[in-house]
């Protein structure tokens, strides 16, 4: 596998920013009630991630080490404002619902994390691909979560009725839990479980072993 391909495809399953690094969960919880805003959010994050990686990488040899994070944040924040403005100018309706989460991309750990961990050490082209790959990895999970939440919570996909809700005269009783943010925790958790059953090498070593509660240790305890 060539280097570029690896950089692009690895973050999708092997090194997924949400499933393996558990970064960027906030927006994954908040915007995934409906598919359409989720897609726009994924697009917004992916473009910020690609461009921030690209620009950080271009100027990486000139960034003074003591202010490097400030420089990265300035770049990221500017890109986020740009994306937000463009969104407002082309889809006002959706920007009303996800606007605040687009603004919060600044604090999304994935963006800062990739700038610091990858773009500071690698060339512009590879950094751009790394941003794209991580953006796709993030998008993959968001889209899966949003599909499940919209379908079972509101009975629709992209706003089109699939399961007709009882309040609209149909047969499907919407799962109200799915429209609440906390359901994403469970869905992301299930996804991580599936992914790690498939790619066993992602399972982390337990940090400590729980001692077995048997007679010997009890006796050992009393003796001490």
């Amino acid at each position: 596998m060539s280097k570029a391909r690896e950089v692009l495809l690895n973050p999708i399953f092997n090194d997924n920013p949400i499933a393996l690094q558990i970064l960027g969960i906030c927006s994954a919880l908040a915007v995934t009630t409906n598919l359409y805003p989720t897609l726009l959010m994924c697009l917004a994050l992916t473009s910020v991630l690609c461009l921030s990686n690209l620009f950080v990488s271009i100027i990486r040899n000139h960034i003074p080490t003591n202010v490097r994070m400030i420089v990265q944040i300035t770049l990221i924040a500017s890109l986020v404002v740009l994306v937000d403005e463009v969104l407002k100018a082309y889809d006002y309706e959706t920007s009303k619902t996800i606007g605040v989460f687009v603004a919060l991309i600044v604090t999304n750990c994935i963006v800062m994390g990739r700038a610091e961990a990858y773009a500071m050490q690698n060339g512009p082209w590879l950094s751009f691909l790394d941003g794209l790959g991580n953006g796709l990895g993030y998008s993959l999970i968001l889209i899966i979560v949003a599909t499940i939440r919209e379908l079972f919570g509101s009975g629709t996909l992209f706003g089109y009725e699939i399961l007709i809700l009882t309040q609209n005269g149909g047969w499907y009783l919407g799962n109200n839990y799915m429209v609440l943010s906390s359901s994403s925790f469970i869905l992301i958790g299930l996804f991580i479980w599936l992914l790690r059953s498939w790619k066993v090498e992602q399972i982390e070593e337990p940090e400590f072993q729980v001692a077995r509660n048997n007679l010997e240790t009890k006796e050992a305890g009393t003796r001490v």
């Binding site: 100027i59 000139h62 960034i63 003074p64 202010v67 400030i70 420089v71 300035t74 770049l75 924040a77 500017s78 404002v81 740009l82 403005e85 463009v86």
Partner: peptide, 17 residues
């Protein structure tokens, strides 16, 4: 670096806005 970056970023943002 700090001043140039801030200037460039703010000009781009203002123009877009």
């Amino acid at each position: 670096v700090g001043i140039t970056l801030c200037l460039v970023c703010s000009i781009i943002i203002s123009l877009t806005a």
